[in-house]
Simulated assay, not measured.
Amino acid sequence: MSDNAPAPAAEPEAPTVKTYTEDEVNALVGGLKTKVDELLSEKKTVAQKAKEAEQARIAAEQEAAKKAGELDKFEQSLRSGFEKEKGELSATLDALKSRVVGESKKAMLGQFMGSFVAPESVDVIAQLVKTEFDGTEVKTQFTDFAGNVITTDAAEFKKWMAKHPAISHLMKAETATGGGASGSKLTHGGAVGGNDVISNWASGLQARLKQK
């Protein structure tokens, strides 16, 4: 062999998957919870100030109209102004409610992130976490892939995931007790109740992670 032969190219190093420590996950969840509390407080403050301002405006205009003897005209003007302000306040409150619900869902998903081998795998359960307003408080429900409510308790939902034949395959060994607990691969018949799609998704995600 000639001494001038080119040396074989070095194989590129495979990128590592980003993992999070328990402290990092707790810090992330804590920050999201703080954001939710801030948004809830802002929503309540906006609603209270709007109510107080409306009451003060009505009282002042009623008094002025009575003194001027133009109550009918006042009532018509009042309705027009009230509907306009009501629409603006409703839009503001709806936007705040949407932000609160969104941040609440992010915080809840953050609690489960540390249970997965790859943190991005938590995206598979995003559709199973339902957050909405119940009065003035945010309510969270956890469902299966058919949309049936399983529980409202995060700990119970985590137990359900650990036993699910598709989701457990993505979870850390100390958490999973289903088909992924022993490292076994999912089969077409491993998922029940129409879970073939999610099983295929889980297998595909793991394959992509291994290629990175």
Score class of each variant (00 low, 15 high):
I198L: 03
K172N: 06
G193Y: 00
T131D: 09
V129L: 00
V122P: 00
F82D: 01
W160I: 01
K73Y: 06
K212D: 10
T19P: 00
G189C: 10
E22Y: 07
K159I: 09
K163T: 04
A118G: 03
A202Y: 02
K51F: 13
A59D: 04
V46L: 14
V124F: 13
S203Q: 12
L96M: 08
S2D: 14
G114M: 08
F112I: 01
E75A: 15
A118Q: 03
Q62M: 13
A60H: 06
V138Q: 01
G204K: 06
P165R: 07
A9I: 10
A146Q: 14
V124W: 06
D72C: 07
V29Y: 03
F157R: 04
G179M: 02
L40E: 13
D72M: 14
S77Y: 09
T143Y: 00
E38T: 10
N195E: 02
G110S: 08
P119T: 08
R79Y: 08
E83G: 03
S199L: 09
V100M: 08
A191M: 00
P6V: 09
T92G: 07
P8R: 10
A9P: 14
F112Q: 03
G81Y: 00
E52I: 13
K159Y: 07
E88L: 13
T177V: 12
E156Q: 04
A50P: 03
G110F: 10
T187G: 10
A202C: 05
D94P: 04
A207L: 15
G110R: 00
W160E: 01
D123W: 05
F116V: 03
S184V: 11
L28S: 05
A64T: 15
L32Y: 03
E63M: 10
W160D: 02
T16P: 01
